[in-house]
């Protein structure tokens, strides 16, 4: 069983309580994580993937504690992530970006210093991932030259190259056209069909509602709802959290 279990996680940045007593579990599903700006969604991702330590609380995956491990160790346990502010290796080609993920098992060993990274086996794996993410035509292009929508796809391709069991996607549809977002949803569903569990942070409500089997709503660092999309849509507190956000936006402008 590969269950992710987040238990009573809190995170404090100085005077700001970014997360407060957050608990959730997921296994075998596409889980949506939504909430207004500043709700703590990305902070939670950063804590699960080891980029931030929690102030208190525990996280386990497959029974193993994650909250004291470094990001590069957490990838090895089968949890890969993408970044909201995309981080492609810009001067490397799209192919090399994917190869960088394929090297994941080699990096900890001394073989990394002697073994060449372009072999027929690694290139075959990389091209399979490029085909799956529909990036094969761009293989030789520097990643920085790709349009933003394809760079978001490349983030996913690179994460897939580490062969994850759980994929954390941080706003993968941000800045995509409706058509691109539909393609992305298809890709995410096909990954899930292959047995990869997915947690996706999404701002686009209809995208999240259509894609996810279950949705967790964060507001001001706390979970205010955790249910199926149909129930979430009717939830009073969720509607208030989002309406409150809109009122605040109107007041600011």
């Amino acid at each position: 069983m590969t269950e992710l279990r987040v238990e009573h996680v809190s995170k404090r940045f100085g005077g700001l309580q970014a997360l407060q007593d957050v608990s959730l579990q997921t296994e075998g599903e596409i889980l949506g994580l939504i909430g207004p700006n500043g709700a703590g969604k990305t902070t939670l991702f950063n804590i699960i993937s080891g980029f931030l330590p929690p102030t208190s609380g525990t996280i386990t995956y497959d029974g193993r504690a994650l909250h004291k491990q470094h990001p590069h160790q957490i990838v090895r346990l089968g949890i890969a992530r993408t970044f909201q502010i995309i981080k492609p290796f810009g001067d490397l080609s799209v192919l090399e970006n994917v190869l960088s993920g394929i090297g994941m098992p080699v990096y900890p060993s001394a073989r990394a210093l002697f073994q060449r990274y372009r072999t027929s086996a690694t290139l075959k794996q990389a091209h399979a991932i490029l085909a799956q993410t529909d990036l094969q035509d761009w293989a030789q292009a520097p990643a920085a030259n790709l349009p933003i929508g394809l760079q978001r796809r490349l983030e996913i391709a690179r994460a897939l190259a580490t062969r994850p069991h759980l994929l954390l996607l941080d706003e993968p549809a941000a800045g995509l056209t409706t058509h691109e977002a539909e393609d992305l949803a298809l890709l995410i569903r096909s990954l899930h069909a292959q047995g990869i569990d997915i947690i996706v942070i999404e701002h686009n409500m209809s995208f999240a509602m259509n894609l996810c089997e279950r949705i967790v709503v964060l507001a001001q660092g706390q979970i205010i709802a955790n249910d199926t999309p149909a129930v979430i849509q009717q939830d009073e507190r969720v509607i208030n959290a989002y309406l409150g956000q809109e009122e605040a936006d109107v007041a600011h402008s």
Partner: peptide
């Protein structure tokens, strides 16, 4: 950060 995310220590 991206390096760490692909398993590079």
């Amino acid at each position: 950060d991206a390096a760490a995310a692909v398993g590079v220590s």
